Simulated assay, not measured.
Amino acid sequence: MKISVVAMGKMRDARLGELAKEYRERLAHHLPVEDVEVREVRVSGNDVAGALAEEAEAMRKASPEPALTIAMTEGGKQIDSAQLAEWMDGWMVGGQRHVVFYIGSAHGLDRQLIKSCDRRLSLSKMTFPHEMARMMLWEQLYRAMTIIRGEPYHK
């Protein structure tokens, strides 16, 4: 199974970028991984919805098909690390070939993209900068894999 994180924009904070890279590389010892950065669309006037729709189209084009798609959104399901491990284990056992996580820009994700995804997931009820959310997602994916493998990282 391959894991892709398709995210809007570059990791501008070098510290968060290095942490995300570290967890992604750790996970890559167990599964193929891919970090896809999509260029953000500038909001023209107050047309946030239009910009989000453009971003969603770019994210779809950057995503492999077929794949299980997961929107990272504040309205998504909140689960703990062990539950994420159960999801991932189920995907692997079930033969899922590719899982794609979408992380939006500071404006979030397009509503139609969220609706079209197979699942919606939230890291927390709190709001985080999207760069931090990206780093945290990679860490949680790595943590889930260590849970599945019975490794001591998760305590």
Rank of each mutant, 00 (worst) to 15 (best):
A62H: 13
V43Y: 07
D89M: 00
Q83A: 15
G90T: 04
G50Q: 06
A53H: 08
V43W: 04
V48T: 11
K61P: 10
S81A: 06
D80F: 05
P64T: 10
A56Y: 01
S63Y: 02
Q78P: 08
G94D: 13
A58P: 05
S63I: 01
V38L: 09
E74K: 11
A56C: 11
V48G: 02
L52N: 09
V41H: 12
D89K: 00
R42Y: 09
S81R: 02
A51E: 03
A82F: 07
L68H: 09
G95S: 13
G50T: 13
P64D: 07
E55L: 07
E55P: 07
G76A: 04
L52V: 09
G94I: 10
A53G: 07
E54C: 10
E54G: 08
R39K: 15
E65S: 11
A85M: 02
W91Q: 05
D89L: 00
R42E: 14
E57D: 15
A56T: 07
A85T: 01
A58Q: 11
A58N: 12
G45R: 04
R42T: 14
E40I: 13
W91Y: 15
R60Q: 13
G95K: 13
A71Q: 01
W87V: 00
E57G: 15
V38G: 10
N46P: 00
R60P: 03
A58F: 03
V93T: 10
A67F: 02
W87P: 00
T73I: 09
M72K: 06
L68N: 03
D89H: 02
W87S: 00
Q83F: 09
D89G: 01
G45W: 01
A62Q: 06
